[in-house]
Amino acid sequence: MKTNNRGKNKATEILEEIGFDDVTELSNQELVNGFGIIFISEPLDNADGKIIRGRTNTIIKVNSSIPYPEKIRFVIAHELGHYFLHEKMEIHSDNVKTLNWFKIENQAKRGLQEFEANDFASELLMPEKSFKEFITGKFFSPSLIKEISNRFGTSLTSVIYRLISLDINPLLVVFITDGIVRYWRKSADLKGWVKDVTKLPPPNDSVAKEYIDANYDFIYTGNEKAQEISRSTWFKLYDNQKDNVFWEYCIPTKQYKTIISVIWED
């Protein structure tokens, strides 16, 4: 899918207009109401977020049943992206399919608009300058993802995508749903050729495969979240290339049968 920088550029423009380096200190209500939009938190059927644009007022709704405040925050920012970028969008609902960074590239009809809204949300919640300043000098690990999530108040998934889209750490990120690899993205600084894994089950010796076999239950916690694997698990080896130590960290979602797998070199 062809992408652009409209979302990022608009979020940067908005931050400059309101005079904030980032919006971390603003509550959800303040963030939405500050733009003259009505904010409602209530149970929603088959939706995580919704925007309703009327002649005089706009309403943003978020599903109060979402258990994670960081996800709620990202949903709100995504709907704000639609508000600022897609004026012709009068009524629109978002769910796991449209909010997921790793699915929208396969959507022909609404993919670009959802990418732009996600890109807007990413820059609004994690402005590039503040984001880079916060992680400077810190080594990558699962605890760093959580630390960033806590600092900026946004979801783990959005943090992972932010890290790889800004090419800050040498990472391979793989999105798996229903036991099949649907999408992967590699940082330019992570050298090597990824195996042909798209539309196939993850490798048998991968941590992702362990989570599938465990029916997407959490099987590793604490310091064990990062599991040691070999380069050859996900990468091709060439001409006596050393099969060095890599690490794999997975975030499974049992409800949707998805896994986000992050792979990096020791």
Rank of each mutant, 00 (worst) to 15 (best):
residue 1 M to C: 12
residue 2 K to N: 15
residue 2 K to W: 15
residue 2 K to L: 14
residue 4 N to M: 02
residue 8 K to T: 13
residue 8 K to D: 14
residue 8 K to F: 14
residue 9 N to G: 00
residue 10 K to N: 07
residue 15 L to D: 06
residue 15 L to T: 05
residue 16 E to D: 15
residue 17 E to Q: 10
residue 21 D to N: 11
residue 23 V to R: 08
residue 26 L to M: 14
residue 30 E to Y: 00
residue 31 L to K: 03
residue 32 V to A: 01
residue 32 V to K: 03
residue 33 N to R: 07
residue 33 N to H: 02
residue 34 G to I: 05
residue 35 F to S: 02
residue 36 G to W: 00
residue 38 I to H: 02
residue 40 I to M: 05
residue 44 L to V: 05
residue 46 N to M: 06
residue 46 N to V: 02
residue 48 D to H: 05
residue 50 K to N: 12
residue 51 I to Q: 01
residue 51 I to M: 03
residue 52 I to H: 02
residue 53 R to G: 00
residue 53 R to Q: 04
residue 54 G to P: 00
residue 56 T to N: 06
residue 57 N to T: 15
residue 62 V to W: 01
residue 65 S to E: 10
residue 70 E to R: 13
residue 70 E to A: 15
residue 72 I to A: 04
residue 72 I to S: 05
residue 74 F to V: 01
residue 74 F to A: 00
residue 76 I to E: 00
residue 78 H to R: 00
residue 79 E to Y: 01
residue 80 L to S: 02
residue 82 H to G: 01
residue 83 Y to K: 02
residue 89 M to F: 12
residue 90 E to V: 14
residue 90 E to M: 15
residue 93 S to R: 09
residue 99 L to N: 06
residue 104 I to A: 06
residue 105 E to R: 11
residue 105 E to Y: 13
residue 108 A to G: 14
residue 109 K to W: 07
residue 110 R to Q: 09
residue 113 Q to H: 03
residue 113 Q to A: 09
residue 114 E to M: 02
residue 116 E to S: 07
residue 116 E to I: 06
residue 118 N to K: 03
residue 118 N to P: 05
residue 119 D to L: 01
residue 120 F to D: 00
residue 120 F to P: 00
residue 120 F to C: 01
residue 121 A to V: 03
residue 121 A to I: 03
residue 122 S to L: 11
residue 123 E to I: 04
residue 126 M to R: 09
residue 126 M to S: 13
residue 126 M to I: 11
residue 128 E to P: 10
residue 129 K to M: 04
residue 130 S to P: 04
residue 134 F to P: 05
residue 136 T to A: 15
residue 136 T to M: 11
residue 138 K to E: 01
residue 143 S to F: 13
residue 143 S to R: 15
residue 144 L to W: 14
residue 145 I to V: 15
residue 145 I to D: 12
residue 149 S to K: 07
residue 151 R to M: 09
residue 151 R to P: 10
residue 152 F to N: 12
residue 152 F to K: 09
residue 153 G to S: 07
residue 161 Y to V: 10
residue 162 R to T: 11
residue 163 L to N: 07
residue 163 L to M: 07
residue 163 L to C: 08
residue 164 I to W: 14
residue 166 L to W: 03
residue 169 N to W: 15
residue 171 L to W: 11
residue 172 L to E: 06
residue 173 V to M: 08
residue 175 F to A: 12
residue 177 T to N: 13
residue 181 V to A: 08
residue 182 R to G: 04
residue 183 Y to P: 02
residue 184 W to F: 14
residue 186 K to E: 14
residue 187 S to K: 12
residue 192 G to R: 03
residue 195 K to V: 11
residue 201 P to N: 04
residue 204 N to Y: 11
residue 205 D to L: 08
residue 209 K to V: 11
residue 214 A to T: 03
residue 217 D to P: 10
residue 223 N to Y: 14
residue 226 A to H: 08
residue 227 Q to M: 06
residue 230 S to I: 08
residue 235 F to V: 09
residue 236 K to V: 13
residue 237 L to K: 04
residue 239 D to L: 09
residue 241 Q to D: 12
residue 242 K to G: 09
residue 243 D to W: 04
residue 243 D to F: 04
residue 244 N to S: 14
residue 245 V to Y: 08
residue 250 C to Q: 03
residue 250 C to P: 05
residue 252 P to D: 09
residue 252 P to T: 05
residue 256 Y to A: 00
residue 256 Y to T: 01
residue 257 K to Q: 11
residue 257 K to W: 01
residue 263 I to L: 11
residue 263 I to W: 09
residue 264 W to A: 13
